[in-house]
Design a protein around this nucleic acid. Structure first.
Length: 805
DNA sequence: CGGATCGAC
DNA sequence: CTATGTCGATCCG
């Protein structure tokens, strides 16, 4: 589905984006951008929703300020080091670039709206949107000219476009159509990956190979012509298959064929992108939409060209917040993202900057991984404010729905999360992980209800004023765990009983708080009445408070007389899952304690250990176990460090003072900051100055014999580019170059831009933007520390306030 | 683990 | 009147 905000990077600021303001290319019949913005603003102003948007926007601004503060503390040395690190990585990535795949992204045009239009010819040529007065899923292109977009509430859309027809959602229909489309897609790639109902990725690499040998008749299709004046049945009769069409074997023609067949079969159009990886393919499908396609040929240069001036906002995974943060760093396009790689690596998390680097090199995944196992399942509902009793009922209903879904997939979950959104649109989530996994309505509700109650108590005596409630379950048991779960001691606790990690104090029962809850809303009550019976018994509260510990003890003990008079009670340790025939509870407890402490050596008997201790411990234990599993993530290394030279095994200072010639045994290594977009340096740094982790260093040095890739238009042999100012140096003399770098570092030489650099277009926008737009739209272009501090403060301010004027 | 946030459809 | 529902990922504490 189209994203309301996408393609809108040039719009003023984040908030406007969030509200769905958009540009209107040449609004012939529609509204122009100014009008659209005004209307949306008027409709939004003062609403709770809007207030909350302001708040969120403010939070983003605070994040930006933090980042800018961080930036101002970055030293030139750090930057330089980072530059080298990133260049090395960039080169490595570039070297392993895989252009051998042909990935296709298919995107149905205005899908829901198109389906509705197809089935309702009267609506043709009218602006329509699919959804409700409170939320639109999509709109047709006609409506978009009025600024009506997906994710916009219908009532605002109506203000923008009073003649707008809003059609309610028909999910079943869309699913059917989607299925028809998928049948076609499967012929080209049986492992294609659907993304929602209207999009899919295909890897047609293999298919293309096969098709090369196909005879013409296998590539032939027939055109059915539809007369829109006829109805469906008449179509069937009147369409004789006449004109044959033959599609070739090239990627383009194959995709033409796919789109042709989709249109023939569904009478709906699709757009498509063809590229060597998914990221590019996705962006390509956007390029000639609607009803068009675009291909990036599998050449490095073509990729780089496409990426070059592309707004980062177009990149899948970069949303409005990231866009705004990068914009604060003066980064709007992908080449700017590349240029700032050193800085970025110091300001963002490793996963983020690695991602950014790959984006800026036009890299993406070349294979379609089928989605792994489900991680969570949830359901949520928005409603008008309701009473506390109704909130409980609703909660139960959600649990019921969820339980049904869980049943379909046969899943059991360990974590239950309650999501609440209050009438001010503030969202809160509260979660508990239980020892005994849950799957039935009662089990889930037993947990969710406690969470809900806690939240109620937190604001009491005020009621919780909610507009949305949701329940999510996660932490699913795998097959093995499901078996264990049946055997283990937790089964002694009745299903649904849980050991809460929160709420260590006794709570009032539900009835205490809402004495007449069951008398209030009759409609909820029928269900409720029946459920409560089953529930009441099972969920009297199992938080590990003292009262409940009693319950737990008695639960365990209660099993004992029945079987064998307590003589040889069989317990299953909740930690190691082994069976124990301890004669007493204490003995068993000691075992658990040992298990928990990790030592199964002979115990130092401690009779004071109680269930209380063990249960608390076992909860903590569970946590620790989980944390052990997590792979510790590597820290970003900013400190000047030592690195051991592979060959000589001696420590060398890492700071990149360039060594003189003789030491530079070399492969080619770029220090250029305009890697891929402009002329690049091909001079290697001596490897002992490389500021990378050791492993990487070794890797690199072992591969340093093989030829490193050339960048597209790298022409001359030895062009040195200063890692500080990003400029080419005319000299090839390392000593001279070093001096330049030193000067750069010491004095912040950035202003001294050479003319040829300008003409190459490798300059930062910020660096030479002394133009007049500053203070208007693009206010506060960020300039590297040395030149302007005013710009910075300017920047953080240019948000909503300016809009109000 | 729990909570908040982002991003996509 | 009237601003979604579901899911995965990531970051921080």
């Amino acid at each position: 589905m189209e994203n309301a905000d996408k393609g809108n990077a040039s719009s003023r600021e984040g908030l406007l984006l969030r509200l769905g303001l958009n540009d209107n290319k040449a609004g012939m019949q529609g509204l122009d951008k100014e009008k659209i913005n005004k209307i949306i603003m008027e409709a939004s102003k003062g609403s709770k929703f809007y207030e909350n948007e302001l708040k969120k926007d403010q939070q983003v601004n605070e994040r930006i300020e933090k980042i800018l503060k961080l930036k101002s503390k970055v030293t030139d040395q750090q930057l330089m080091k980072a530059q080298i690190k990133m260049d090395k990585l960039a080169m490595k990535l570039d070297q392993s670039r895989d252009l051998s795949c042909t990935i296709v992204h298919i995107d149905m045009d205005a899908f829901y709206a198109a389906v509705e239009l197809r089935d309702n010819p009267e609506l043709r040529d009218k602006p329509i949107a699919v959804g409700s007065m409170s939320m639109l899923s999509t709109s047709n292109y006609h409506a978009r000219r009025f600024g009506v977009r997906a994710a916009m509430p219908g009532f605002i859309a109506k203000k923008l476009c009073p003649h707008l027809t809003i059609v309610p959602l028909n999910f079943k229909k869309y699913e059917e159509v989607s299925k028809e489309v998928r049948e076609i897609l499967a012929e080209y790639d049986s492992h294609f990956m659907p993304m929602g109902l209207d999009e899919a990725y295909l890897n047609i690499t293999e298919y293309l190979e096969e098709r090369k040998n196909w005879p013409e008749d296998k590539r032939q299709h027939f055109i059915k012509t539809y007369n829109s004046a006829l109805n469906e049945q008449q179509h069937q009769q009147s369409t004789t298959q006449i004109k044959p069409v033959v599609f070739g074997a090239s990627a383009e023609e194959v995709v033409e064929e796919i789109r042709f067949r989709i249109e023939q079969k569904t009478r709906l159009t699709a757009s498509a992108g063809i590229a060597p990886n998914t990221m590019l393919a996705k962006m390509c499908s956007d390029k000639n939409k609607p009803n068009g396609q675009y291909r990036i040929p599998p050449e490095r240069e073509a990729v780089m060209n496409f990426i070059k001036d592309l707004a980062i906002r177009k990149v899948p995974g970069i949303g409005k917040v990231t866009e705004k943060m990068l914009k604060a760093l003066n980064i709007v396009t992908c080449s700017e993202l590349y240029q700032q790689r050193a800085l970025i690596s110091l300001l963002f998390s490793e996963t983020s900057w690695r991602n950014f680097l790959e984006i800026s090199l036009g890299l993406g995944s070349t294979h379609l991984e089928r989605d792994g196992e489900r991680k969570s399942m949830s359901t949520e509902r928005t409603f008008n404010e309701i009473s506390a009793a109704e909130q409980y009922s609703l909660c139960q209903e959600l649990c019921s729905d969820l339980a049904q879904d869980l049943k379909k997939e046969g899943l059991k979950a360990r974590t239950v999360t309650l999501k609440l959104k209050n009438v001010n649109f503030e969202v809160k989530t509260r979660a508990t992980t239980v020892m005994s996994a849950v799957s039935t309505e009662e089990e889930i509700f037993a947990v969710a209800k406690d969470l809900l109650r806690s939240e109620m108590e937190a604001v009491a005596p005020q009621p919780l004023r909610l507009r949305l409630m949701g329940i999510r379950v996660s932490g699913f048991l795998n097959e093995e765990e499901k078996k264990y779960q049946q055997k283990s001691i937790v089964n002694f606790l009745e299903p649904g009983k849980h050991i809460s990690t929160t709420g260590l104090f006794p709570r009032k029962s539900e009835e205490e708080i809402f004495p007449n809850a069951s008398e209030k809303e009759s409609f909820f009550n029928k269900k409720r009445a029946t459920r409560q019976q089953t529930n009441q018994a099972a969920s009297l509260n199992m938080s590990p408070n003292k009262q409940n510990l009693q319950d737990m003890k008695s639960l365990v003990k209660s099993v004992e007389p029945a079987e064998n008079n307590g003589a040889h009670q069989i317990f299953i340790c909740p930690v190691c899952f082994e069976e124990h025939q301890d004669s007493t509870l204490e003995a068993f407890n000691r075992h658990i304690d040992r298990c928990l402490s990790g030592t199964l050596e002979e115990d130092i008997t401690d009779n004071s250990k109680s269930w209380e201790n063990t249960t608390e411990l076992s909860v903590n234990m569970e946590k620790e176990e989980c944390q052990k599993d997590k792979t510790s993530k590597p820290q970003i290394e900013v400190q000047p460090a030592e690195i051991v030279d592979n060959a000589t095994n001696r420590s060398t200072d890492i700071f990149p003072k360039l060594q003189d010639d003789e030491h530079s045994r070399e492969s080619e290594c770029s220090l250029s900051s305009n890697f891929g977009f402009d002329t690049c340096a091909k001079q290697d740094f001596p490897s002992n100055v490389l500021s990378v982790e050791k492993e990487e260093y070794f890797e690199e040095s072992s591969s340093s014999e093989i030829k490193l890739p050339c960048f597209p238009d790298a022409t001359e042999n030895k062009v040195l580019v200063c890692p500080v100012c990003n400029l080419e140096q005319k000299t090839t003399d390392l000593a001279l170059f070093n001096r330049h770098v030193d000067v750069c570092l010491n004095k912040g030489i950035i202003k001294q831009l050479t003319e040829e650099s300008k003409s190459l277009g490798i300059l930062d926008r910020g660096q030479n933007s002394t133009n007049s737009t500053v203070g208007k739209k693009r206010s506060g272009t960020l300039v590297p520390q040395s030149t302007s501090k005013k710009a910075k403060s300017n920047n953080s301010k240019c948000t909503i306030e300016s809009f109000f004027k």
